[in-house]
Design a protein around this nucleic acid. Structure first.
Lengths: 117, 117
DNA sequence: CAACCCTGTTGACATACGTCAAAGACGTCG
DNA sequence: CGACGTCTTTGACGTATGTCAACAGGGTTG
């Protein structure tokens, strides 16, 4: 059975030795994998891209941009949020605004990168 | 229904504009997502780590290292191979040897990194 | 050749995942 | 207040995924 990836704390960017440095223990691998899994979907990659490029976007703009229901987009956003890759939605007026957490994505890249570091 | 991620060519490292540069189109996002999905599992992260750290490893050493059946490890290796993240197994003697493709992983990181570039 | 290791593949099973429709929760505007 | 607009949650669905047991190939070694 597909391991039910345990819920772990992702409020802070991943912080562990680079993957290429030494064989990773199970805990560190889990830290990396849960964040990767949050990104491992074409829709969520596009959402991240939209958020990174525009700094702040609301759901009503994201849904048409990826051609999906707002309900589905909301679901994807919650996955990204639980992984710490985007901020909590901030309600202003009638819309909810999201922004990417560059530091979290950057930290993930640094752990993965076999060259840098 | 979970989109049946189409089979795409992953024989060469991902080559597209960084995620943070501009809103990504669906094709580019797919290129990134299929590679991420291949990595988005704790076991596969550990396998990559083992391969990166040791340069060349055979299945018989990987299985006990992650505490799983060799059949399961073989399955995970085929996922990584199809994503272009590790080389085809090379048979020498009784063992099959694998090695990580640093260039593929590096290219993926460069596309994801919001800082670098 | 025969018995034996190291692998990869197939089948089966339980679970997780992506999607939408429908309904609920807030906030706005008449 | 009441009708509407924007999001999120819930429920349901089909599909994909991770795991192992069992079998099939190919080298090795007797």
């Amino acid at each position: 059975m597909p391991k039910a990836l345990p819920v772990i704390d992702t409020s802070t960017p991943v912080r562990c030795a680079p993957v290429a440095a030494a064989p990773m223990d199970a805990d560190a691998a889990l830290e990396v994998a849960v964040r990767l899994k949050a990104l491992a979907d074409p829709v969520r990659v596009r959402l991240m891209s939209l958020l990174l490029a525009a700094d702040e976007v609301c759901t009503c703009d994201l849904a048409p941009a990826v051609g999906l229901t707002e309900a589905t987009v909301s679901h994807h956003l919650s996955v990204l949020r639980r992984a710490g890759l985007i901020s909590d939605g901030e309600r202003r007026g009638m819309n909810v605004w999201y922004r990417a957490r560059r530091d979290s994505l950057g930290a993930l890249c640094r752990v993965l990168d076999p060259d840098c570091c």
